[in-house]
């Protein structure tokens, strides 16, 4: 499914003049990751929409609701585990590696593992 079709199926995606808007760069990245994993057949878009919708609903009942794309991201991590792409443990190790990489990288240089 193309990004266009994927967008059409999730009406709640924040938009301006019909185009999705992102408050920060990572949100665009998160959007693209979900669309791309669907394009590659990792999950169907209806599975995505269903899981994301349920998370969004649960979020509105939470004490301190997360932002729209934070919920999108939780869904992405959840789908990653469900389909065996990356476990929480792998993410935790990789996250430490990135933080260590950032700590040894001076400002203004690309951060690389």
């Amino acid at each position: 499914m193309s990004a266009r079709e994927a967008l059409a199926q999730i009406a709640s995606i924040p938009r301006d003049c019909g185009e999705p808007v992102f408050a920060e760069p990572w949100e665009a990245r998160a959007f693209a990751l979900a669309v791309h994993l669907n394009e590659r057949g990792v999950f169907t878009w209806s599975e995505w929409a269903e899981t994301f919708g349920a998370n969004l609903k649960a979020n509105t009942l939470a004490g301190e609701p997360a932002s729209y794309y934070e919920v999108w991201w939780q869904t992405l991590e959840e789908m990653g585990e469900r389909h065996g792409l990356a476990t929480a443990l792998e993410r935790s190790h990789r996250s430490d590696e990135w933080q260590a990489a950032a700590a040894r990288t001076p400002h203004g240089k690309p951060i690389e593992l």
Binding site: W26, R29, A30, W73, R91, R94
Partner: peptide, 9 residues
């Protein structure tokens, strides 16, 4: 978080 998951994938 984004860098972490993206780099793994």
């Amino acid at each position: 978080k984004v860098r972490t998951l993206e780099s793994l994938l």
